[in-house]
Simulated assay, not measured.
Amino acid sequence: MAKVKYYYDSDTLSYRKIETKKGSIYKNTILLLLAGVLLMFIGFIVFSQFLKTPNELVKDRELENLKINYELITKRVEESSKILTQLQERDNNIYRAYFEANPIPDEQRKAGFGGVNRYEYLDGFENSSMIKKLTKDIDVLSKQMVVQSKSLDEIVALAKEKETMLASIPAIMPVKKSDKMWMSSGFKYRMHPILKIRKFHKGMDFTAPKGTPIYASGNGTVALARRSPTFGKVVYIDHGYGYRTIYAHMSKIATRRGRKVKRGDLIGYVGNTGRSVAPHLHYEVHKNGRAVNPIYYYYGDLTPQEFLAMQIAAEEEGQSYD
C-alpha cells in the first residue's frame, strides 16, 4: 500500500493530505516505462557484442579447427621439406657422385616460382597471407619432389648401365689357376725369343698344356676370330666402354666373329700357333685403344697374396714366349 504524504498548510495551521493528479500518474508511468525500454535497448546493444548466435558459434568452432589443421599441415610440410633436403644432399653427394653424374643445382630444383604473382587469386580473404604462404610452400615442395623423382629415375638407369659395365670390364684370368699353369712373362720390355731384340711385351703370357681351356674375361662381342702370322689363332673381344681383350696362339678357336659372350664363356684352347716358341696364352687388355697392364684386371680371381706374388713374378727379367 502506497504511503500517504502530507504537507503543512500555514493558512489553516494544520497538515493537509497531498492529492496526486491522475494526469501526473499516467505521465510518470509512461516515463518510467520509456526509461526501462531505453535501458533494455542499451543493454541489448552492449551485451550483443558478447553474445553470439548458434550459427556464429558453429562458424567460430570451424575456424578454430581450421587454424589447428593449418598448423598441423604447416608442420608436416616443414618436416617433409627437411627430409627432402637430406635426400637431395645424398642424391648430389653420394648417388650422382658414385655414378659420375653432375649434381643438380639448387636453382634448378627450386626454379619456377618467381616473377608474376601466381597467388593473386588468394587475395581478399581474412587470412590471405597465411593461405598464400602455405600454398607456396606446398608448390615448392611438389616441384622439388618432381625434380628429385626424375633424378632417381636417372640414377636407376645409371645403376643398370653400371651393372652392365661392371659385367663387361675384364675381371678374371683367361685360364683357370692350376698347378700346370703359371704366369711366365709380364707387361714390360723383354727379349723377344725369335727376333732376339728387346721389345715391349704388351700383355701377359700364361704357360699351360696344349688344349687348356681359355675363357672370356668379361661380357662382350667377338670382334675377330681368325689366324694371323704373328698371333696364330687369335680372338679379339670388344667389351664396350673402351675395353678390348686379345687371346693369342690358340690351338683351336671355340667361338666366331659377332657372337655375344659372357664372362667365363669358353672361347678357345691354349696352343703354340703363330710366332710362339712353346704352348702358352698371350693375353692383352686394351683401354681406349692403348694396351694396359692385364694384372690389374684379375680382381675377380686373385687374393691379395696371389696378386702380390704375380706382381713380383711379372717384374722378373727374361724373354717372352712370343
Rank of each mutant, 00 (worst) to 15 (best):
K188T: 02
Y189D: 11
R190F: 08
R190N: 00
H192N: 05
P193H: 04
K196F: 09
I197Q: 12
R198M: 14
K199V: 03
K199R: 12
K199N: 07
K202V: 14
G203E: 03
M204Y: 05
M204K: 09
M204G: 14
F206A: 03
T207V: 15
A208G: 10
P209N: 08
P209S: 11
P209M: 02
G211K: 05
T212R: 01
T212S: 04
I214S: 10
Y215A: 07
A216W: 00
A216N: 00
N219E: 11
G220C: 03
G220S: 04
L224E: 15
L224I: 12
T230N: 14
G232W: 06
G232D: 03
G232H: 04
V234C: 09
V234Q: 11
V235F: 10
Y236N: 11
I237R: 01
G240E: 09
Y241D: 00
Y241W: 12
Y241A: 04
G242A: 05
G242N: 02
I246Q: 14
I246D: 09
I246S: 09
I246V: 15
Y247G: 05
A248R: 05
M250G: 09
S251T: 01
K252Q: 08
A254I: 08
R256V: 13
R259K: 13
V261Q: 01
R263G: 11
G264P: 09
G264R: 13
V270F: 06
N272L: 13
T273N: 06
R275E: 13
R275L: 12
R275S: 12
R275T: 12
S276E: 02
S276W: 10
S276N: 06
A278V: 10
